[in-house]
Amino acid sequence: MIGAAAIALIVAIGLMLIRALSGPTLYDRVLAMNSLGTKIVLFIGVLGFVLGRPDFLDISVLYALINFVSTIAILKFFRYRSFQVPLMRKTNTPRQPRAAEGGEDG
């Protein structure tokens, strides 16, 4: 049963990879990367049970944290074209961050 779950996760990873390779816009690729990170986390968790070592769950939890932070960083980059903008919107900032046009892909 766990093997079937692992195979299903591999198939899902393959689908995410197809979307990341052929995604027409950048947002497709970001979403594919984030979703693929989630699938990787699940896959490592399942892998621990397949190999009889459930302590892999700790590693997968840490991967979830890394995946979340890197997705936030990439989306912040897309939105503001910079990492140096605070995520909290201040009321009277001197330089208002410019909204990105988005969606362009070379």
Binding site: L21, L36, F43, I44, N67
Partner: peptide, 19 residues
């Protein structure tokens, strides 16, 4: 040739190789 896509794909590469 799109550098954004290459950055995304290199991140995916790192995730899969970590797995």
């Amino acid at each position: 040739r799109s550098l954004f896509a290459i950055v995304m794909l290199s991140s995916i590469y790192s995730l899969i190789s970590a797995t």
